[in-house]
Amino acid sequence: MNKIELGEMGELLALEYLINEGYTLLAKNYRTAFGEIDLVVSKDETIIFVEVRTRRTLSFGTPEESITRVKRERLIRLALQFCAHHYLYSQNLRFDVIAIYLDNDKPKLHHIPHAFSQEV
């Protein structure tokens, strides 16, 4: 299983989890010139942008740790672009992180709602 396959598998696991939790899928792998948002879902009139991180080993840190400031800023830009693109104004926006750790092929999933916000 290479890195791309691993990522896709993680995203599918995350999507399955979110749908079970009552979220509605708006977009998957929303891609623009700046980059990509893994999942865009909605629930309770809030649009949630989800970044999925999948890891097989913890030797390079936990999946949650791997979201840097640059990555956060990029996600915020992408989210604003997504909203502009779909004419979504004055909506509640939220950024979630789903961390998946594949331990002996048994995935452990950790959902962090409202993982970060815009730094002012």
């Binding site: 509640n92 939220r94 916000s117 815009q118 730094e119």
Partner: peptide
């Protein structure tokens, strides 16, 4: 408190 990008401004 208003909708929009989550942020805390002071």
């Amino acid at each position: 408190i208003s909708s929009g990008l989550p942020a805390f401004e002071l």
